[in-house]
Structures are given as structure tokens and as C-alpha cells.
Design a protein around this nucleic acid. Structure first.
Length: 807
RNA sequence: GCCGGUGUGGUGAAAUUGGUAGACACGAUGGACUCAAAAUCCAUUGCCCUUAAAAGCGUGUCGGUUCGAGUCCGACCACCGGUACCA
């Protein structure tokens, strides 16, 4: 980076104002203030050892600017911060370096707090929470027990995603694509004892609640997809020579006349149930074995090549055609979705089509419109039903309804809904997490820890190394494991698994409202005062996991009367990623990582803030540029150097006044719409206007400083003081614009011929339209382009343009 | 495959309801200041032709609607993100 001569001493200035803000608690929110409340929330960081990342800066800046603007607008702003400090990296670091995770975490939090302050972020540091603090996780455990009490927690033996490297059970969301979220190794399926939270019970509420959450289409679409609702029907197929019914779920009951075979998942219980009837049971078992060995990843990778085995000796009966049809097992049907069995309609489903082609099965067209000799016809909009006596000639939509009616009347099936979302696997075999507050007693069985015994604290011990058995390290700690049963007083053992990382972050936004409460999550009075989070900003990567989990917990707490709103957040936004200057994602291995603290040391926090906000649209990903950063500094330098030009002399001009009011309006609107880049551009334009003059008034300069203050708070505060103010800019009144001052006396009118600009003229505002037409025709440049042509019509857009249509 | 987004100068990017494409910034070039450099200030800067003026061409591609399209419609291409035998 090339050297430059600073026009102001950023380190001195920034330190001075940070000390003043934080020591005098300028950003502390007041409970029950007379002022109107505003709650802005950013996702709290995981305090990693490497400190703050440039991404944190971008994520927090948006609502820092907004919160600072809100304070100037007279709002009582709650803009809190905390630390989501449980998690594997800390545990791994602690194991590697033989330091207790408590010490590691405390150190990291200390560093983070200093860095957040060095960036001038206006957080309320009096409400800092730490998810690893027993006073915090007591309530995480409390919510877990409440869920247990309300039947939303259950233990089951289940196939779970297991990471063999981390030795940890993962949720579906943590193992997307068959890879471990953390270490990227292939996830395998293991049978394990698992604690589940019944999030599926809230599927519909979480889906409906999306209507109340203001967000962009992407944020909404990802949540909808993740919940994954689909409507259709359960249909019961008879099994030949048996009383048993084979139940399937389908979204296309209209295609039932085309169901020419059935497919069940390799794990389907009927295989065992009917093993005496199945003639090729050995072959089936072989297939089951192979399917089990395949990782989820392989199952997807090999998706193109469908495999399966016909179950000989077992036939199903199509309830509408009464024909006997074969049953196959295949791993393209999942035991975890629907009923683990499908009716296959090869003519109208691509997967069934592939399977039918491979095994030479009957394909019956029941919807006209495609060419089923070539491919499955899956369109539901255009085709009409054929070969389906009951519903011939109907549209797909009408046929669905009629078939479901028929099925229900004849007790062959029913309307049904399915969700892709599964219950939340909630235990991890780790030390550094919230202990699950459950006790196992030989006499009484599973006993929840009584509420008054919370928190169940993590023992401070030397050894916190994973066991070879894949059990939690807590299992080795006898003084933790052994306890007395709260029911019978006999000997008992504690659950040694801990909660997943997502637990603590599922309700933290509530704790900020009342962080020191010993009786409750938060008092009703304070919850009532602060209400919902008005604006929540965070990473796109948390839109499917954290956002849904936290909405789920909040819905639950609402249902049991602990909180006052169903939906925790009114509005959710997400920032774009800052890429390395090579346009690649920042990573240590690529050597393109930008360290925000180095930037602050060299250029100052104001420069970093201004650049990060100016670099591009806030929601887009953008490459970092050192040169762009210098440009931001140059802008602040120019503002600093403008100071000597501030004179008491009158320099008022109506034109400048209009530009000032335009800027006030534009900057304000831009900030509300997260268009920080154009807000700063408008401030630059205003600065350039000021620079054209030999002198500017104090009042005009103050407008610029006030508008810029939320973005570059330190240097503007310093200049404000230099102007002779004794109070801080932080709580100065935000400027307002005067609508009347926006009106121009004169406007530029574009004259075009056939849509092409040929000339420009200046006329007074609201100039007569007819006169404008004749003025346009008089223009020499316009006439040049009208030569040999006939004017057909003239279009006038008031105060904007005249377009002459000529042939 | 499906869902969402993006595609505009040398670069990052702007552009209300369709109404002057390229605001603002970076870089570059020329000049001023300086012994010189940095910093600063001034000027130019979409492409093409040109001494200049004036034309012409320009928002991923092809078509359409319109007096007028970066913006609306249709078909496609490329890239990014998400998701994936979900029946």
C-alpha cells in the first residue's frame, strides 16, 4: 500500500470518541423509555481465535448505520451484541493446546469486544451475553425441559447422519450433500440413541409465519423449500392374498390409472413382515445390505443409474383398475419421506420412467400431451386425462380432486400433506456444549432435571478429550455422571451428551431484552416494551437453519405463554459476501484474506466503514479493492479539508439549497433501503458542490456532517466539536428536508426524434405543453433530423422530454 | 434437474411508474504545484471515425410490445448461490 499524508490523525480521533461513547454509555438502551423503541439485531458472532473477519464488519455495519440514524431520529434503540461461544473449533483448539475451553472462550471474547469497539460499532455493551455462561445456558436448558414437558422432546433409536471424523451426530442441515458441515468428510448413517425435538409439529406454523416476516424472495424461498410442504393423498393398495395394505403417499393421485408397479424403500418393514411369502428373500437381503452400505452421498451420486429387485411372491392391487401389479424394492425410495413406499407411474414421473425402462415394465399414458415413447410427461398444466374411466377428459387439477373424493368415499385413501422437514436431532457427543438436563435412574427411568436444579453446569476438569467409543467426553467424568435421582433419591446417571451449537442461538434475541433476569427468560414487562425485533440482519447461510430453529423456539415459547409474539422478527435481510481482490471467496489457503484490524490500524475505522458500505449494493457479493479503500479515505480527507472554508459569511444560493434538500431526502431513503452505496455517492456529490464554492456556511457544513455521521462517526464527531458544539453528534437531530425546497425553477427538457435524443433545452418548471411542442420543432438540431420526414405525432412528458414521431 | 440471483465502460458500480445509459468512485492520460517524488488541485476519459463539429454504434444473445426498452413479454446463453431420487 502506498504511503499517504493523512490530513487528520485517525488513531487519535477514533480512540478519543470511542472512549467517550463507551465510557459514558452513550449506546445503552433504556428499558421503558418514553421514546419509541427500535430493536435492531445482528447475528452474534462465534468468537473464534482469529478475531473479527471483514464479513463481520459488513454484517454489523448496516444496522449500525441504521441504529445511529434511529437514535438521531429520537428513538430508543436496542442494538445488542453477544457471543455464540459453544462449538467445536474452541473445543478442538483447547484439546490441541491443552487449554481449557473456558479460558480460550474468555480470551476470544475479550479480543472480539475490543475489535468491535475499534470499529466504532454502536452496540449496547451493557447487555453482552455469552451462550456458554451458566447463567445463560440455564435458560437454554430450561426451554429444553419445557419442550420435554410439552411432549416436544423424544428419544428414539434412529438412523442418523454421523461424521466419523468429528465423531458427532449431525442434523440433516449440518450434513447437506452427504458431507459434514464442519470437516467435509463423508457422512455415514448410524443407528444411535437420539434426542429429537419435534420441529415438524410446527411445520405449518413456521410456513404460515413467513407471511409476517418481511424479507426478499430468496430468503423466503429457501425457508419454504426447507420446510418442503407438498399436498397429495395417501392411497392404500391391497396386497394380494393378505389383509395388509400398502400405504403410499403421492402428489399425483390423478395418475393412479397409470400406476403399473410399486416401489418400497430397502428399509421398509413389510420386507421382514412378509419374508415367508417372499420367494427371493436372499436376493432382497443382498440388496438391502448394499443399500445400507451406500452413504447418502453415493445414493445421490448414483442417482442416474436406478437399481432394484422385484419382490417375487408379493403383488399389489391397483384399487382403480383392480389389476395385480409387481412390487420392487429400490433405494430411490427413501424410508424417511412419506410412507417409504410409492405407486410408480412411469408415464408421468421421470424416476419411475427410468426404472420402468430399465426393467421393461408397463408404461400406460394417462395424460395426453407428451410423447411417452421418449420420456415421461410431467407437465400438470396442459394435458387432459385419458385411459382413466372415472376421470377421462378432466384437467389434472380436477382429476386430483375427483380421485381423492372417490378414495375417501370408498375408504381407499385420503387427502394428505407431507413435509420435507424432519425432526431436529438434538444431541452431540461433545464437551463444549450445553449439557442435556436429563437423568437416568434404574428405578424411575428417564427423569428430567427439576427446574430448580438448573443449570446443569459443565464440570471444570482437566480432561475434555473425546472418548474412543464416540461417547461424549463427559462420560469419563465420574463426578459429573454420577448423581442422585431427583424422584427416588437413589443412584442415577446423567445424560452425557450436549446440545448442538444451534441451541444457544435459538433464543438469544429474547435474552438481550432482560439479560440479568434470574427468574425468567425475560420479564413480561420488558418483553412488552421491546416487542419484536424490528430488523434482523445476518448471513444468507443462516436463513435455513438458525432462522427456522429460532422461529420454532419462539413459536413454542409463545404457545406456553412465555413471550408475546408468535414471530420473533419483523424483517430479515442478509448481506452479500466480500470476496478477495481476486474475486474468489476469502480463504487462508488462497492468501486473499483481508484483516479488518490491519485496515483500521492503517486507515482508521471510518475509512473502512465508508469503503465497505460504498463498495457495492449491500446484498451483492463484491471483490475487495485496496484502491477503493484509498478512495474512501480521500473522501473523508476532503471533508476534513473543507473545515477552513466554513465561514459565517452568507453564501446562500437557491440552487445549493435544493441540492442539500435532495441529499437529505436521498440519503435517508437510501439508508432505509440498505442502499448505502448510493447514499455515500450522494454525500460525495454534495461535498463536490461545496468544494465548488470559496466558502460555505456553518449550517450547510453541519448538514453534511450529520448525514455522514452514522457512516463515519468518529471524524464527523471531531469536526462537530471543532465547530464549537459541546454536545455530541450521536444524539443530534437528524436533518429533515422540505418538500417545497425540492422544486426546481428551471428544468432541462430532452428533445428527441423517434426516441433518439437530438437536443436539450432549458425552460421554466411546469412549462406549457403546447408551447413546448413548438419550441421543440423550432430546434435546429431537431429540424436537421426531420428533413424529408412528416411529423406524425408529438409526445410530451411534463418537465422531462418531448419526443417527435416522424416518418 | 428444480428454486433464487446476476450479466452495463479499463475496474467497483448507478439509473422512481418504461422517458438524457454509465451518477459516484477507482484507474489511466495530460497539465499545475515541486529540485524531484508523494499528496493536492485542474482538465479529459463508453466504443468508433474525426483537426474539430456532426454522425454512427453501444446495457449477455435472438425476437416481440411501445412514440420510446438496461427496465416489460417470449425463447435462449453464461456465471454465482441454494437444493436435490421428497414420490
Amino acid at each position: 500500500m502506498s504511503e499517504f499524508i493523512p490530513s487528520f490523525d485517525e488513531l487519535k480521533i477514533e480512540k478519543k470518541w470511542q472512549d467517550r461513547w463507551y465510557n459514558n454509555k452513550y449506546f445503552v438502551a433504556n428499558d421503558y423509555s418514553e421514546k419509541e423503541k427500535y430493536y435492531s439485531l445482528v447475528e452474534f458472532p462465534y468468537p473464534s481465535g482469529s478475531g473479527m473477519h471483514i464479513g463481520h464488519i459488513r454484517a454489523y455495519l448496516s444496522l449500525d448505520v441504521l441504529s445511529r440514524k434511529r437514535r438521531m431520529e429520537g428513538k430508543n434503540v436496542l442494538f445488542p451484541i453477544g457471543f455464540d461461544a459453544f462449538g467445536l473449533p474452541t473445543e478442538n483448539y483447547a484439546i490441541k493446546n491443552q487449554i481449557h475451553p473456558r479460558i480460550v472462550t474468555d480470551n476470544n471474547i475479550k479480543v472480539f469486544k475490543e475489535q468491535l469497539k475499534a470499529a466504532g460499532l454502536s452496540f449496547d455493551f451493557s447487555r453482552v451475553i455469552d451462550t456458554t455462561d451458566p447463567e445463560y445456558y440455564r435458560w437454554t436448558q430450561w426451554i429444553f425441559l419445557k419442550m420435554y414437558e410439552h411432549g416436544l422432546v423424544y428419544k428414539d433409536i434412529a438412523y442418523v447422519n454421523f461424521c466419523p471424523d468429528c465423531k458427532v451426530v449431525l442434523s440433516n442441515e449440518e450434513s447437506q450433500g452427504g458431507k459434514c458441515d464442519r470437516c467435509d468428510s463423508d457422512v455415514i448413517q448410524l443407528e444411535r440413541d437420539v434426542w429429537f425435538l419435534k420441529i415438524t409439529e410446527y411445520a405449518e406454523k413456521l410456513l404460515e409465519g413467513l407471511d409476517e416476516l418481511e424479507s426478499n424472495s430468496r430468503i423466503r424461498a429457501e425457508q419454504e423449500k426447507w420446510i418442503g410442504k407438498s399436498s397429495g393423498a395417501y392411497i392404500n393398495f391391497k396386497i394380494s392374498g393378505s389383509e395388509k395394505l400398502l400405504k403410499v403417499f403421492t402428489t399425483r393421485p390423478d395418475t393412479i390409472y397409470g400406476a403399473t408397479f410399486m416401489v418400497i424403500a430397502p428399509e421398509h418393514p413389510y420386507l421382514d413382515m412378509f419374508k415367508d411369502q417372499i420367494q427371493n428373500f436372499n436376493e432382497i437381503q443382498d440388496y438391502q445390505q448394499k443399500a445400507l452400505l451406500k452413504s447418502e452421498f453415493e445414493r445421490i451420486e448414483l442417482a442416474k443409474d436406478k437399481t432394484g429387485v422385484e419382490i417375487k411372491g408379493l403383488k399389489a392391487i391397483n384399487p382403480l383398475t383392480n389389476e395385480e401389479i409387481p412390487i420392487f424394492i429400490s433405494d430411490y425410495v427413501m424410508i424417511t419421506y412419506g410412507t417409504g413406499a410409492i405407486m410408480a407411474v412411469p408415464a408421468h414421473d421421470t424416476r419411475d420412467y427410468e426404472f420402468a425402462k430399465k426393467y421393461n415394465l408397463k408404461i400406460i399414458e394417462v395424460i395426453k400431451g407428451g410423447d411417452i415413447t421418449k420420456e415421461a410427461f410431467t407437465d400438470t398444466e396442459t394435458g387432459l386425462l385419458v385411459n382413466s374411466p372415472l376421470i377421462d377428459g378432466l384437467t389434472v387439477e380436477a382429476a386430483k380432486q375427483k380421485i381423492i373424493e372417490f378414495l375417501e368415499k370408498n375408504q381407499l385413501g385420503e387427502l394428505a400433506e407431507q413435509y420435507r422437514m424432519k425432526d431436529w436431532a438434538f444431541n452431540r457427543q461433545r464437551y463444549w456444549g450445553e449439557p442435556i438436563p436429563i437423568i437416568y435412574c434404574d428405578k424411575c427411568g428417564v427423569v428430567p432435571v427439576p427446574y430448580e436444579d438448573l443449570p446443569v453446569t459443565l464440570p471444570m476438569v482437566e480432561k475434555f478429550i473425546p472418548t474412543d467409543t464416540g461417547e461424549s467426553p463427559l462420560a469419563n467424568i465420574e463426578e459429573f455422571v454420577n448423581c442422585t435421582c431427583p424422584k427416588c433419591g437413589g443412584k442415577a446417571k446423567r445424560e452425557t451428551d450436549t446440545m448442538p451449537q444451534w441451541a444457544g442461538s435459538s433464543w438469544y434475541f429474547l435474552r438481550y431484552i432482560d439479560p440479568l433476569n434470574h427468574e425468567k427468560i425475560a420479564s413480561k414487562e420488558k418483553l412488552a416494551y421491546w416487542g419484536q425485533v424490528d430488523w434482523y440482519n445476518g448471513g444468507m447461510e443462516h436463513v435455513t437453519r438458525h432462522l427456522i430453529y429460532s422461529r420454532f423456539w419462539n413459536h413454542f415459547l409463545y404457545d406456553i405463554g412465555e413471550v408475546l409474539y408468535k414471530e420473533p422478527y419483523k424483517k430479515r435481510t442478509a448481506q452479500g459476501i466480500i470476496l478477495g481482490s481476486d474475486n474468489e471467496k476469502m480463504s487462508k489457503s488462497k492468501g486473499n484474506v483481508v484483516n479488518p484490524m490491519e485496515i483500521i490500524d492503517e486507515f482508521g475505522a471510518d475509512t473502512l466503514r465508508t469503503y465497505v458500505l460504498f463498495m457495492s449494493d449491500y446484498e451483492m457479493s463484491t471483490p475487495w479493492s485496496d484502491l477503493g479503500l484509498k478512495g474512501a479515505r480521500r473522501f473523508l480527507d476532503k471533508i476534513w479539508r473543507l473545515f477552513p472554508n466554513v465561514k459565517e459569511a452568507e453564501t446562500y444560493t437557491p440552487d445549493l439549497e435544493r441540492i442539500i434538500h435532495e441529499t437529505i431526502k436521498g440519503v435517508g431513503e437510501d439508508i432505509e433501503n440498505m442502499k448505502y452505496n448510493t447514499a455515500i455517492a450522494k454525500l460525495m456529490t454534495l461535498l463536490n458542490e461545496y468544494n465548488k464554492k470559496d466558502a460555505i456556511t456553518k449550517a450547510d457544513y453541519e448538514v453534511l456532517l450529520t448525514l455522514l455521521n452514522p457512516i463515519a462517526p468518529h471524524v464527523t464527531e471531531e469536526l462537530w466539536e471543532m465547530l464549537g458544539h459541546e454536545t455530541l453528534l450521536v444524539y443530534e437531530t437528524y436533518p429533515e428536508y422540505d418538500e417545497a425546497k425540492l422544486v426546481k425553477d428551471e428544468v432541462e427538457i430532452v428533445l428527441s426524434v423517434n426516441g433518439k435524443v437530438r437536443d436539450k433545452i432549458i425552460v421554466e418548471n411546469n412549462f406549457d405543453q403546447e408551447k413546448l411542442k413548438s419550441l421543440a420543432l423550432e430546434s435546429e438540431k431537431v429540424q436537421n433530423h426531420l428533413e424529408g420526414k412528416k411529423v406524425i405525432k408529438i409526445i410530451v412528458v411534463p418537465n422531462k422530454l418531448v419526443n417527435i414521431v416522424a416518418k
